[in-house]
Design a protein around this nucleic acid. Structure first.
Length: 894
DNA sequence: GGCCCGCATGGTT
DNA sequence: GAACCATGCGGGC
């Protein structure tokens, strides 16, 4: 970006200063300060002129006799207002006259009536306001409180200045940013001034002022880059962006238009557009440019209204290219900016952006196309300048019902108002349809840091029909400073598109942001990527979906995929999800099995307690894990159990009440001395055992193992339970014999039946007063099932009873009293019993209840038989006792 | 019991 | 190893 590259316009190798024209070495040894030419290039100056320019006395040196000198209204200092060199050293005052930039800055900072707020601020009052001493923005009263206007005295500032004001309000005043600035960063007006020292060599005419005043008079606020650009070029009364664009386009080069129109490689400062290199097309970017740190986080673009887009010069020469070139349609993180431009930006833009930018994860870099931007601001002010800020792919929790969108910290701190209180601020955000949403921007303290969230996003998320994996984008429209929220659906991205996107690799729109390494080549071959955007399918997908910045293209899909964390951030920290869906299922199943392995603690004498009339053995110690056995009944009805030797794997028949340790061998077979040695033959063949023990045949749920491998299955269950036990205590005990005082549903020390009840139903039992979840569930479930069954049984009877009731209406009351009495006897609370509730609610007649007293229902018994399985009894015989308490408890436990 | 709020936890970068 | 951030979880309503 030197004059040598535009020799047609600028005489190469001589100082650009017409007053000097000193020959320049070729090539220039170092980069020198100079102002920006209309072509976007920087005037090359000799050492002396460059030094003078840099020191700010260029005009005094070379233009002292020229017209345009004025005095600062505040300090009286002479200010040259007649040339581009000094264009950024003064500020036009509303009441006329000028202020030198130093005084302007003072007033900017000091003016008490110009306490700036975030353009997005809703609350114009309040403590948060203190955090915005920045000074150039203030709210404009009116219905659209989200719109902000530049302070009147600054209205004549350049767009870059105005943009600076905005960024100042967000960044400059942040302590951290100040801190970053401290080492020499000049993130101040002067910083921007510096940049605008490079505007153009063409002398400024009065048009600039006129333009500014006209815009002021017309109520137009802020001067965008385009108008400024036109004005700076003295192209006449560039009153609007369109005008300026046209003027620029009429007289300027394609590169100029590109710099204004399509070059996204500009900073958040509108003025950065002016800095765009004429060849700043990403295609031409050297790879080094990509690797270089950018100088700005924000990406500014002059929004071109639809009518403006009709301007032939707006898109004219560029239009086809623009449409054909996705890169020209997209906004790129500054890292793709021409390194020279970056250098320029660095000169003027401070290190804040550099640092912020470098700290921002690529996944948050905005990937908004200007197509989207146009949609964002569709119908908006054509003067608007859209600055894509950042984007974020919605996580499951973001898109969930909680309504909290977690904001990347860096992004929140860079682009949203500073908040000092966790309560934060209401933040007004406009979606692309123009609908305003108000979110609460706040934070939570988190590990000596902050976690920023937007609360209340659910309605917006739902309105946009977003879900996890979709991407929301945040942009800012200047000069209003409105926050714009767009979105991009991930669902539309097809694999084909993805592959195309991969092939095209069009810069930041496609690569997985986590992969910076790919960005270099990603900036090549973007034509293909643009075609991708314009495919009919994509157009369909890119329908604005009635408002959103909807880019259902492969780019976004890839982006979404790319942003996905390892293991995916969709559906949550997927590991947890996997545990829930897979491991926990496995755990649950093995737990069911493991319950059958529980044994009463050794050398522990139980105490007998009554639970609703039933005796339970209470052990002071938690149960231990025993060996799994299988209960069978022979033809004579005799019950016994089968256990497998740990050593020889032979099956031994044992008494039904035998309780085996976790490791049981033939030598422990005290019940059958003939088979107390592994050498002894097995009583039954494996085939016979397979028939005898159903679980060996695969009939039960998890009996997919053969007899020979059954111990493995048992071991699995043991291990599972042992692991659970290990979580709690018993480090010195072998896993299989550790007390199981911890398991998923219970607390340490729990003595509920699940923890202590052996599979046989014998041994430890829970307290009558036990209030563990399982016991309560058992009771509740029992009652519910009983009542359900009772209800069904009595429905027919109830009908008959009603008929009888009609005939004998006076008999109902005594019956009801009797029911209550029975309920009390049964140990159920009358008042709280679901029995009563259901009875009453379901309208079961008293007659029916009375009849139930005579039925074989367990409720009629004085005490509940917890061993009853009403579900099975419904299907079989009410008197069936086949169900076990353990089964019921297991059902309840699961 | 459900929802919301605020914080804690822990996986990921 | 620190920071970030997605999500879990407990308490309050």
């Amino acid at each position: 970006m030197s004059s040598s590259s535009s020799a047609a316009v600028v005489t190469a190798k001589i100082c650009f200063n017409s007053e000097c024209k000193e020959p320049l070495p070729d090539p220039l040894p170092t980069r020198r300060k100079g102002w920006r030419l209309r072509s976007g290039e920087i005037a090359d100056l000799c050492d002396r002129c460059s030094c003078s320019f840099e020191q700010g006395n260029f005009c005094e040196t070379f233009h002292s006799d020229d017209a345009g000198w004025r005095n600062c209204k505040t300090c009286g200092k002479r200010v040259h207002c007649g040339c581009v060199v000094s264009v950024s050293t003064y500020v036009l005052l509303d009441a006329g006259g000028v202020d030198c930039v130093a005084c302007a800055r003072k007033s900017l900072v000091m003016a008490p009536n110009q306490v700036a707020s975030s353009p997005m601020f809703m609350s114009q009052q309040g403590p948060e306001r203190r955090e915005f001493p920045a000074k150039s923005w203030k709210p404009v009263s009116g219905p659209f409180f989200g719109q902000w206007r530049q302070a009147p005295h600054m209205w004549n500032m350049t767009s870059a200045q105005s943009d600076l004001q905005q960024r100042l309000s967000y960044e400059f005043d942040r302590p951290n940013c100040i801190e970053k600035l401290a080492p020499g960063g000049r993130y101040s007006i002067l910083a921007h001034e510096k940049k605008f020292e490079n505007i153009s060599e063409k002398p400024i005419t009065g048009n600039l002022n006129n333009v500014a005043r006209e815009r002021y008079a017309n109520g137009k606020v802020g001067i965008d880059a385009a108008s400024t650009f036109g004005a700076y070029h003295g192209e006449g009364n560039a009153d609007t962006v369109q005008d300026s664009c046209r003027l620029v386009g009429d007289s300027d080069s394609v590169s100029t238009r590109k710099s204004v129109n399509a070059d996204p490689c500009s900073t958040s400062s509108s003025g950065a557009n002016l800095d765009a290199h004429p060849n700043s097309c990403v295609n031409s970017l050297p790879s080094s440019a990509i690797k270089e740190d950018s100088s700005s986080l924000g990406l500014a673009a002059v929004f071109q209204s639809t009518n403006c887009s009709k301007e032939p010069t707006r898109f004219s020469a560029n239009q086809s290219q623009s449409q054909a070139d996705p890169l020209s349609k997209q906004f790129y993180p500054p890292s793709v900016i021409d390194p020279e431009v970056q250098s320029q930006m660095r000169n003027g833009k401070t290190r804040v952006d550099n640092r912020t930018r470098s700290q921002l994860l690529p996944r948050y870099w905005p990937r908004i196309t200007d197509q989207e931007l146009q949609q964002i601001s569709g119908g908006g002010d054509s003067n608007s300048v859209i600055t894509p800020l950042f984007e974020k792919m919605l996580s499951a929790s973001d898109a969930g019902r909680i309504g909290r969108l977690v904001l990347p910290k860096k992004c929140a701190e860079a682009y949203f108002p500073i908040i000092s209180q966790p309560e934060g601020l209401p933040l007004k955000v406009q979606d692309a349809s123009g609908k305003d949403w108000v979110f609460q921007f706040r934070y939570w303290p988190n590990n000596n840091s902050r976690m920023y969230v937007l609360e209340g996003v659910t309605p917006c998320i739902q309105a946009m029909q977003l879900q996890a994996g979709d991407t929301v984008t945040f942009s800012r429209i200047d000069p209003e400073g409105k926050l714009i929220m767009g979105f991009r659906k991930a669902s539309c991205g097809s694999s084909e598109q993805d592959s195309q996107a991969v092939k095209s690799g069009n810069g930041f729109s496609t690569p997985p942001e986590s992969d910076n390494k790919g960005t270099t080549k990603d900036f090549k071959g973007n034509t293909e990527s643009r075609n991708l955007i314009n495919t009919p399918e994509q157009r369909n997908c890119s329908n604005f979906a009635n408002e959103g910045v909807l880019q259902k293209d492969g780019l976004s899909a890839r982006s979404s995929q790319g942003t996905r964390r390892k293991g995916g951030n969709l559906g949550s920290k997927s590991k947890r999800l996997r545990i829930e869906n897979e491991d926990s299922m496995e755990l649950k199943l093995t737990w069911e099995e493991a319950q059958q392995l529980l044994r009463p603690p050794p050398n522990c004498v139980p105490s007998v307690v009554l639970v609703e009339g039933h005796e339970f053995e209470e052990y002071e110690e938690a149960p231990v894990l025993g060996k799994r056995t299988y209960f069978t009944t022979n033809q004579s009805g005799e019950n016994y159990q089968w256990a497998q030797c740990e050593d020889c794997s032979k099956w031994r028949r044992l008494p039904v009440d035998a309780l085996l340790p976790s490791r049981w061998t033939c030598s422990n077979n005290t019940w059958d001395t003939e088979r107390s040695l592994c050498s002894a033959a097995q009583e039954l063949s494996l085939e016979q055992l397979a028939e005898l023990i159903p679980c060996k045949t695969g009939a039960p749920k998890r009996s997919k193992v053969k007899v020979e491998t059954d111990n493995i299955e048992v071991s699995d269950g043991l291990d599972t339970l042992a692991n659970l036990a290990i979580l709690g205590e018993g480090e010195n005990l072998p896993p299989s014999s550790q007390p199981t005082t911890k398991h998923p549903r219970h607390r340490p020390g729990c003595t509920c039946i699940v923890c202590i009840q052996p599979p046989s139903g014998k041994g430890p039992k829970h307290k009558q007063s036990c209030t563990c979840n399982v016991c309560l569930t058992v009771k509740r479930r029992f009652r519910t099932l009983m009542l359900r069954r009772e209800k069904r049984q009595s429905e027919k009877e109830a009908e008959t009873a009603r008929k009888q009731q009609k005939q004998q209406p006076n008999q109902s009351s005594p019956v009801k009293a009797q029911v209550c009495s029975d309920s009390l006897k049964s140990g159920l609370s009358v008042n709280n019993s679901p029995h009563k509730a259901m009875t009453n609610e379901e309208g079961i007649s008293d007659e029916g209840v009375e009849r139930r007293r005579a039925s074989p229902s367990p409720l009629k018994a004085p005490q509940i038989d917890l061993n009853i399985q009403p579900e099975r009894e419904e299907e079989t015989s009410p008197k069936s006792e086949s169900g076990s308490m353990m089964r019921l408890l297991q059902d309840a436990a699961t």
